Simulated scan of single mutants.
Amino acid sequence: MTEMWNISSNPHIRDKRKSSDLMSLVLIALLPATIFGVINFGIDALKVIVLSVTGSVLTEYVYEKLMHKKVTVDDRSAEVTGLLLALNLPASAPWYLPVLGSVFAILFVKQLFGGLGQNFMNPALAARCFLLISFAGKMTDFTYDAVSGATPLAAMKAGESVNVLNLFLGKTAGTIGETSTLAILIGAVILLVFKVIDLRIPLSCLLSFSVFAILFGGHGFDLHFLAAQLCAGGLMLGTFFMATDYVTSPITKNGQIVYGCIIGILTGVFRFLGSASEGVSYAIILSNLLVPLIEKVTPPTAFGKGGKKHE
């Protein structure tokens, strides 16, 4: 035989765009939230971003060199992981948090499971949860306009009212990339226009969360409360940029809807029925673990079977 064929199990997904092209589009889509975060929180936010992205790229490069594997940093997935991790950190985070987080994300969640396409949960969110468990105080130390205070979600949990317009624009405390719903939505539009993602996961997530909030949020059909819950915390950032990760989300259409609904419901459970005020990160990584089961119970109809008969 003069040719060697690469044989792999189905399903097979074809796309003319390379991984680096898709990752570049994600980086571009994250720019509005990134730029706003730096403007909003200053030089400290920029330091966290630089450390996180650099740590992710260096970890991937060094590991692949030491393991004599092909160096894949040019696919830009490590940059995306580092940037997403940074956007999920407070600007006040000490230097070692983005460094430790980036090493954990790339080494333990991505590379040790085979690299790009093999990780079983979103690396950036897994690293954020690792840091939340290990450094809870540092990870929940939020400062806005040089004043330390509770996040809007914590304020609502305590029964206080919040300004929805400030939440939408980003004039509030929070992590570097989660505060401005407007900036996140601009990035989401970029992803949708260039068909990097579709609306199945985001819509099913936001709709299921909204229904859960109305039923169990304690405020009934209160549009002000619902809008505040949607705009506050990491729900928008997680829904559009991390729940839609190709590797850790279902490939079946019905599965994507089920997956999004599970994320929305779990987020509501953590926010309204648990002691924590936030829960998007845990909701997404728990849903990541359910993806094989979701795909197993939501297979597409085989070609030529189950269709309507035409007379």
Rank of each mutant, 00 (worst) to 15 (best):
F130R: 03
E178V: 11
G304F: 08
T248K: 08
G101S: 03
L230P: 04
G264R: 04
V193C: 00
L192H: 01
G177V: 07
Y259R: 05
K157D: 02
L125E: 06
D198M: 01
L169Q: 03
A105D: 04
I214W: 07
N40P: 00
L235K: 02
H224R: 06
I257R: 01
F168C: 01
S277I: 03
S92C: 02
H12N: 05
L169A: 04
L165G: 00
V50F: 12
V109H: 01
L165M: 13
M121S: 02
M121T: 07
I214M: 11
I251Y: 14
L230R: 02
H310Y: 14
Q111Y: 02
L290T: 09
T59W: 03
V71M: 01
E3C: 01
A136G: 01
F36P: 03
L289Y: 10
M236V: 14
L85R: 06
K171G: 12
E311R: 08
P250T: 12
D145T: 06
G137A: 04
L153A: 12
T175A: 09
F135P: 00
A183M: 07
A136D: 10
E64P: 00
V291E: 08
P202T: 05
L100I: 14
K47P: 00
F270I: 01
L293P: 01
G55H: 05
Q111S: 08
G101R: 05
R17K: 14
S204W: 11
A158F: 05
S77K: 11
P32K: 09
V258M: 11
S77L: 11
F241H: 04
L230V: 04
A86S: 14
V189M: 07
A243F: 04
L286S: 12
A227K: 00
F108K: 12
D44V: 03
G234P: 03
K195V: 02
I265P: 04
L206S: 06
A136Y: 13
A91N: 14
Y259H: 13
S208D: 01
